[in-house]
Amino acid sequence: MERSLLQRIESFLRESHMPPSVFGRAAAHDPRLVSDLRGGREPGRRLICQVEHFMNKWRVDRHAGRVAPCGDRRHAGERR
């Protein structure tokens, strides 16, 4: 059974350590995207393709060493 777009996004958020609003803004110019999907918004085909493209490109770029997991910028510089 194929996973829903929201399930794939949730998995991507865990993998990338990207906050949902940052993801939504970067993937679809909509910081409320993930929140809306969690609330029941049904994505259209264009949005699905746009989001999938963003996630696939991010993974390729990370594999090539061009990006690193971004994490939560509110805690940038803190040692853990």
Rank of each mutant, 00 (worst) to 15 (best):
H75P: 00
L37P: 07
R32V: 02
N56A: 15
I48A: 04
R73Q: 11
R74A: 15
N56I: 14
R38N: 06
W58K: 03
P31A: 12
A64N: 10
H53A: 12
V67F: 06
V67K: 05
H53C: 08
L47I: 02
R59S: 08
M55P: 04
C49W: 09
V51C: 06
P31N: 11
G39H: 11
R73P: 02
C70M: 15
G44R: 00
R66H: 08
P43S: 05
G40P: 10
D61F: 12
P31C: 10
S35W: 15
H75G: 04
R74K: 13
C70F: 10
L33S: 00
L37S: 06
C70N: 05
P43R: 02
P69Y: 04
D72E: 14
R59K: 14
A76S: 11
H63P: 06
A68V: 03
V34W: 07
G71C: 08
M55R: 04
D36W: 13
Q50I: 02
R32I: 02
C49T: 07
R59F: 15
G40C: 11
R62D: 01
F54G: 06
L47M: 02
R46C: 00
D36H: 13
D61K: 05
R59V: 08
R46T: 05
F54R: 00
R66P: 00
R46P: 02
R32K: 14
G39A: 11
A64R: 12
V51D: 01
V67N: 03
I48Q: 03
E42A: 11
R41I: 01
G40V: 09
A76E: 15
R45Q: 07
M55D: 03
S35E: 14
V60N: 08
R38P: 00
A68Q: 05
G44P: 00
R38H: 09
W58V: 02
E42N: 10
W58L: 03
Q50D: 00
G71E: 10
R66L: 12
M55A: 01
D72P: 01
G71I: 06
R59N: 09
V34E: 07
G65H: 08
V34Q: 01
P31Y: 12
V34M: 09
W58C: 01
N56G: 15
H63D: 13
H75D: 08
G39F: 09
H53T: 09
R73A: 11
R59H: 10
P31W: 11
R46D: 07
L37M: 03
S35I: 07
A64F: 13
D61A: 09
R45D: 05
A64G: 05
R73G: 02
S35F: 14
R45Y: 02
R38W: 07
C49I: 08
H53I: 07
R41D: 01
G44T: 05
I48T: 05
N56L: 15
R73N: 10
R74L: 15
N56M: 15
V67C: 00
H53Y: 07
D61Y: 07
R66E: 12
N56D: 14
R38C: 05
E42H: 10
A64S: 10
K57Y: 09
V34H: 06
R46F: 06
R73V: 04
V51P: 00
F54T: 01
L47V: 01
N56T: 11
L47H: 03
R59Y: 10
R73I: 03
V60C: 12
R74F: 14
A76F: 14
A76M: 12
R45C: 02
G44E: 08
G40R: 12
A76I: 03
N56K: 13
E42W: 09
I48K: 02
